[in-house]
């Protein structure tokens, strides 16, 4: 049994391992990660922004002790940015430097055809792995001890790129015309995240396991805050998590994410807050609300929200 297999021995081990690296996973998340490892399948993670999708991949990499290779998707992302590129500069430089050598090689040959014939014996020296610039996808395949590959916000890429991903996700191999097929030395653990700005194709979904991460329950979010913000009192944690959960129920444009809850908690700790009070809340609202309209809506109900949070925490 390899070292990784012991790390994925049971769901509980996975869950504890993720917790040790600072990621509090719900049972569902732990279950899916465990299953994905044992089936060797990519995981497609969906859910609201700031729910911890990207964090999960980072935590998994830390937990497994392998590098995290991240591919940020955007419109217009293509093979040369995602997979590999030839080092044109290096190729050019080398041909210049080796000009004398090349001359000597074809010395004595008279005709053009013969010279080219001679050069052919040296094969594709300028198209060899030394001149290959690996981009995230190829890098992930080449990692000897495996890696966590994070394809972030795959919904932002175009349909063409999505189709291109399919080969890699199902066979873990890519073909480079000049060199041949490169297979993964050890299969990377793949996470794809999506915010559903675009409906992803059926084919991609079929190849992945699917995980939906919504905002955590209060108890879980408290646990997250406590792990991430050392030195915060339990009472304050209760109050602020309860406050955030109320804000998420309001009719606002962008709901505060988990990472923003953590930011707010950190801010409050720096300000030496012991308990929520509405003046302090008003001044720190902008740590988790980023639109003027949202701040206005929340400020109107500030008093009631704070009162309720304090009452609920007791």
């Amino acid at each position: 049994m390899s070292a990784l297999d012991t790390k994925f021995a049971t769901v509980e081990v996975v869950r504890r391992g993720l917790k040790d690296v600072g990621y509090i996973a719900t049972t569902q998340i732990a279950h899916t990660v465990y299953l994905a490892y044992h089936l060797g399948k990519p995981v497609l993670v969906e859910g609201p922004a700031g729910g911890g999708k990207t964090e999960l991949a980072k935590a998994a990499a830390l937990f497994m002790g392998v590098p995290l290779i991240r591919l940020q998707c955007y419109e217009g992302l293509d093979e040369s940015k995602a997979l590999y590129e030839w080092k044109y500069g290096k190729q050019l430089l080398y041909t210049q430097l080796l000009k004398d050598k090349l001359d000597r090689v074809i010395e004595g040959e008279t005709g053009l055809a013969e010279s080219i014939e001679k050069l052919h014996q040296y094969d594709d020296i300028f198209f060899s792995p030394q001149f290959l610039e690996p981009r995230p996808l190829l890098k992930a395949l080449q990692e000897k001890d495996g890696a966590v590959l994070l394809v972030d916000e795959v919904d932002k890429s175009d349909d063409e790129f999505e189709a291109f991903l399919l080969e890699i996700l199902s066979d873990f191999q890519v073909s480079i015309p000049e060199i041949g097929t490169i297979e993964a030395t050890s299969k990377p653990f793949v996470f794809l995240t999506s915010n559903s700005t675009r409906e992803l194709g059926e084919a991609l979904r079929r190849r992945c396991l699917h995980l939906y991460i919504s905002f955590p329950e209060q108890a879980l979010e408290r646990e997250i805050v406590m792990t991430r913000v050392p030195g915060i009192s339990e009472r304050l944690t209760r109050q602020l998590v309860s406050f955030i959960h109320q804000v998420r129920k309001l009719d606002i444009k962008k709901l505060p994410s988990v990472s923003e809850t953590i930011d707010w908690a950190k801010t409050l700790v720096i300000l030496h807050a012991e308990t929520l009070d509405k003046d302090m809340v008003r001044e720190t609202l902008n740590t988790f609300l980023k639109a003027q309209e949202d701040i206005r809506v929340t400020e109107e109900k500030l008093y009631a929200l704070t009162e309720h949070a304090i009452r609920e925490a007791n």
């Binding site: 769901v11 569902q28 279950h31 899916t32 299953l35 089936l39 969906e46 559903s196 699917h210 939906y212």
Partner: peptide, 19 residues
Amino acid sequence: RLLLKDFLSASLAKSMPEK
């Protein structure tokens, strides 16, 4: 049951409505 449910959900239901 919970384990089974999460496993099957991850491998069979691939979008929010399907979940």
